[in-house]
Design a protein around this nucleic acid. Structure first.
Lengths: 218, 218
DNA sequence: ATATACAATTAGTCTATACTCATTGTTTAT
DNA sequence: ATAAACAATGAGTATAGACTAATTGTATAT
């Protein structure tokens, strides 16, 4: 084994403590999300997360102290990613686009993603474990409360015209959430996929009709 | 303690074996549903169910053999009850009623019920545990597949007129399911309750508009 | 009446898992 | 260079929960 120290730089370069921490934290959160998707809340054990992350058992506890705190951090992470993605894609929409179709599509890309199953698992866990109270998660609240402003920015004139605009936004979320729930929990097949596509198409038509400037009554 | 044997009939009368079995089974299923609602899937341990049912540990295993089978039976039971209730209430509708509003209300009474949280827990558990496959549950499948025929019986002329009638039914279910999901997982307060009520009202209006006979184009 | 099948109970076993702790390795401050 | 702080490891503990098994109680046959 000849040593060639200076010419071949070590692949694992020298990292600061903060970088080391951040890296293992990210790996743990990724693994936690993956476990939630694959094995559910009960199956997301500390050992399973460690194994998937390639990190020692003690290290997980060093960073998060307890399983519950790890799962809280997981919820924050997965929400943050989803929200970031949604906001980014909505802001990137060209002005003239069919924004209603695009809004539904972007929301579906979030609620139809595998990560939504992780969110579902954590929602239910939080509903049972009182110590995982909903109020503990600012990212989740930001998502919930940021929707209407986001939609108002997309459709300023519709928001001004329709008095129940925020109710319409709620309706949109219910539809996408309902589809996401089915998508996450039922085995997908050709039929269900087709029905979902038709449902989204129909709903877009309903929205277009509701959001368009009222035709003069004849 | 005077003994008055024949005049005071024992409160726990003599029951057949079948009755005894059915009674403890029912108590176990009730307790299981209650545990799912209160503590979630992970918290629905065999011991917790036994304690709540007031039944011994061994008796549970005697009847259901394994925790998994108990939970499968629980899903069947809760689905059966919900489906029975929905069908019964829909069939009891007077002819002339505003049937669209009634359909939404009846569905919401099912998906807004606390039992829906038990269903959610089991849906998610089934999605992770491959051995709890979806196909194992005829009651659940009957619920899923019985919807469109049920709605067609309610709105025969609309079903004949609208080519995408079944898609509309799917849309209705997504909305109610989405609301049920939020209802089951978020702490309820005045605001969320009001928003849900407005969402349902708005959606009913949409449905009335879609289901009514097309006005002649002017 | 008696035997047989079924229902229910209790104590106990075994495994999986959350968490502790003592130790080693790595980075940063002086 | 050295010490102090931080990151990471792996062995070990305590406990909770699924399931077993031997036993007792209760109903239904003959």
């Amino acid at each position: 084994m000849p040593l060639v120290p200076s010419t071949t730089p070590q692949p694992r370069a020298r990292r600061t403590q903060a970088e080391r921490s951040a890296a293992t934290r990210a790996r743990l959160l990724d693994a936690s999300i993956g476990c939630l998707i694959d094995y559910g809340y009960a199956g997301t054990t500390t050992l399973a997360v460690c194994k998937r992350a390639g990190v020692s058992n003690g290290s997980l506890l060093h960073h998060y102290g307890t399983r519950e705190r790890l799962l809280g951090a997981t919820l924050e992470a997965v929400y943050g990613r989803l929200r970031g993605e949604v906001v980014r894609r909505l802001e990137a929409l060209p002005k003239g686009d069919d924004r209603i179709d695009a809004l539904v599509d972007v929301l579906w890309s979030a609620f139809g993603a595998p990560e939504f199953k992780a969110i579902l698992e954590l929602w239910l866990a939080a509903a049972s474990h009182a110590d995982l109270s909903w109020s503990m998660w600012p990212e989740a609240q930001a998502f919930d409360e940021g929707n209407v402003p986001l939609a108002e920015a997309l459709f300023p004139e519709v928001a001004a015209r329709l008095p129940d605009f925020s109710t319409w936004i709620s309706l949109i979320f219910q539809v996408v959430q309902g589809l996401g729930l089915v998508n996450a929990t039922r085995p997908s097949n050709v039929e269900t996929d087709a029905l979902r596509a038709r449902t989204l198409t129909l709903f877009k038509a309903v929205l277009r009709d509701a959001f368009k400037a009222e035709a003069a009554p004849c």
